[in-house]
């Protein structure tokens, strides 16, 4: 009970949270390739975790001794993603075009990837393995207190995203039209970015980088419901995301076996063919 139930709740949080943040990023950046991690959240988180696991000689060891390895990894991920997001937020106040934020997010991604590869070059095999395992993602490691922290940040993020529905819909016309409809573009943009960081940041901190879901679920939902109206899309992404993540989790948990496959592998193995099939069947990409 204390293993299965938190795991199912985590799956629901991860599926719906990453789906919704992916949807918001795709609309904000008018780009079907955007996902929850375009702002550099994963890169920031992985940098934080890499510093904890592989940079032990520097300061990680004291942290791990103080907090235990898991909490220090959560802390590292949170701190790393917060740092990147804070920078992106400051930048987004200055630039006029949303595309610039997208590229800046990507640049932060390459910087942290570079630092991680330098760290891994100098680290021991055991440390490297610990980092790689975090990168697989996992839904099953959460205790009740951890879950309560995750779900309260998640709830905040969901509330903000519901609050953004109106601005997201006006952004479907383009930024100039949205502005002519009375939307305060900069404020709307920042609320959307904060909502995404709450959702994607907290989820990544506790479960590791769960790939693919955030990118695929919005596409899947648009194909199924045949609309871009966020009043329909947002709840639909929420439900579809939760269901798909629960299914992936039950497949990853091999029946009558103690073995659990990495969740990241399952989501991509199942999700990618479904998205391809939908696109080929309809012969048209809805966006």
């Amino acid at each position: 009970m204390d293993y299965r139930l938190p795991k199912a709740i985590t799956a629901i949080i991860v599926g719906s949270g990453l789906g919704i943040s992916g949807l918001m990023m795709q609309t904000l950046f008018r780009n079907p390739l955007a996902g929850p991690f375009v702002l550099g959240i994963t890169s920031g988180a992985s940098l934080g975790v890499a510093l904890i696991t592989m940079g032990t000689s520097l300061f990680g060891s004291t942290l791990i001794l103080l907090l235990g390895s898991k909490w220090s990894m959560v802390l590292g991920a949170t701190f790393g993603s917060f740092l990147v997001l804070f920078t992106v937020l400051i930048v987004s106040l200055k630039v006029r075009d949303a595309m610039a934020i997208l590229i800046i997010g990507l640049m932060f991604g390459s910087i942290s990837a570079a630092v991680v590869s330098i760290l891994s070059y100098f680290s021991s095999a055991a440390e490297l393995q610990q980092y790689v395992f975090w990168g697989f993602g996992s839904l099953g490691n959460l205790t009740w207190p951890e879950l309560s922290i995750l779900s309260s940040i998640y709830t905040l993020g969901i509330l903000l995203s519901v609050f953004s529905i109106k601005s997201l819909n006006s952004l479907l016309l383009g930024e100039n039209y949205a502005k002519s409809l009375g939307l305060n573009i900069k404020r709307g943009r920042i609320i959307i970015i904060i909502a995404t960081s709450f959702l994607a940041g907290s989820i990544t901190a506790f479960t590791g980088p769960i790939a693919f879901v955030g990118l695929a679920i919005p596409h899947l939902t648009r194909q199924v419901f045949n609309t871009s109206n966020h009043k329909i899309l947002l709840p639909a992404v929420f439900i579809l995301g939760a269901i798909i993540m629960l299914i992936c989790d039950s497949i990853a948990q091999l029946p009558s076996s103690e073995l659990t496959l990495p969740i990241n592998a399952i989501t991509s193995l199942i999700g990618a063919p479904v998205v391809i099939w939908l696109l080929v069947r309809k012969r048209k990409m809805m966006f």
Binding site: R30, N169, S170, L171, L172, G174, N226, S228, N229
Partner: peptide, 19 residues
């Protein structure tokens, strides 16, 4: 400039004018 998303019904697009 063209609208970003045309995946809306005509009614939904006109209704955005009420925002």
């Amino acid at each position: 400039e063209p609208v970003v998303s045309k995946n809306l019904t005509v009614f939904e697009l006109v209704a955005l004018g009420r925002q």
